[in-house]
Design a protein around this nucleic acid. Sequence first.
RNA 1: GGGCAGUUACCAAAGUGGCCAACUGGGGCUGACUGUAACUCAGCUGUCUUUCGACUUCGGAGGUUCGAAUCCUUCACUGCCCA
Length: 376
Amino acid sequence: MKFDLQHTDSASWARAGVITTDHGTIETPIFMPVGTVASVKAVHFHELKEDIEAQIILGNTYHLYLRPGLEILEQAGGLHKFNGWNRPILTDSGGYQVFSLSANRKLKEEGAHFRSHIDGSKHLFTPENVVDIQRIIGADIMMAFDECTPGDAPYAYAKTSMELTHRWLARGLQHFDTTEDKYGYSQTFFPIVQGCVYPDLRRQSAEFIASQQREGNAIGGLAVGEPAEKMYEMIEVVNEILPSDKPRYLMGVGTPENILEGIERGVDMFDCVMPTRNGRNGMLFTSEGIMNMRNEKWKNDFSPLDPNGTSYVDYSYTRAYLRHLFISKELLAMQIASIHNLAFYLWLVKEARRHILAGDFVSWKKEMLTRVSRRL
RNA sequence: GGGCAGUUACCAAAGUGGCCAACUGGGGCUGACUGUAACUCAGCUGUCUUUCGACUUCGGAGGUUCGAAUCCUUCACUGCCCA
């Protein structure tokens, strides 16, 4: 993997760059649709490529390991061959499941003991075997196994948790560096900064992560219950330390507003379930603001979903029709909303990139911010 | 014409003397969702009130009772059966 930093904004920390992988290039800043179980829910790859213009998608180690399982993935020749997505794939390590499935796991020094949410069976994730699993999945970018600390964790817990993540990182890297790419193309490995909402911990973690000198670095443990302002503050603290010649990936973020704020602070990569999950639940993110498509007010609004929308669903379907589909629980509603939201997210980062290169990012971002966060 | 059963909120349907403004579904309205256990979850759904609470309701009218959606009389309507 290679990262070329093309331009850094003169009035902010915003950057434009290009990541090159063996499965193609990624223009940053980028938003990466989440495809947890080898599928971006409700969206075909054809739409993902042609209409949404996604350049890279996510998969999830924990979920893919449980289903379909490593044997199938290995037989298929890796995830790209299994699901037919021939562009880059990034896999989350399962660190987020340590957080979201916390009732079903126990953390120990060796790793995380899990109970499958599917059948209750017992499993152990270690920094080492999570590397092996991601090798077998065939991720272009693999993530370190970390503990995603809750946003409201007390200082002492956040510190202990961060230190565990650091020790796990050392083990994961050691294992990564002594194992080989599984399918002939290059696989890289990103470490993850933790430290919760505490600036000194974040600094300490960023220093440690930066010192590993990997091809890219991630910021984890944000947008997990802390106020947005705290998140922005932590991004600033961390990005001051993380190397500027490597891509910075803010994990699991976020709203269009969060993404604009992140870009302004020097983040290059984002992923989030919001455009797809919230889309399936009736929420549309548009260039004019946020709409709950189930609301009665769209009942007889026969205007396009988003007058500035870039995907075909925006001018093929009206608000009144999409509302009808949601109210009727039609599957098409989820498909339309997912396509629209993802296309909007990809449009947003593409525009951000364009304005960074043009040198007017800050004024554009300010204007865009007032529009995208509005409630329609 | 006779017999039997029934009529409860937007719909369906519990409730058969006080714990009932009335269970539960559905429908409707609103909200939540951030490295996806999520086509999920939560709240509201008689009127007024921010809350407390007050008021008006269970086909219509009248009655019994301290007290009625619940008991009685009568009327209306619906369904089934017999002529």
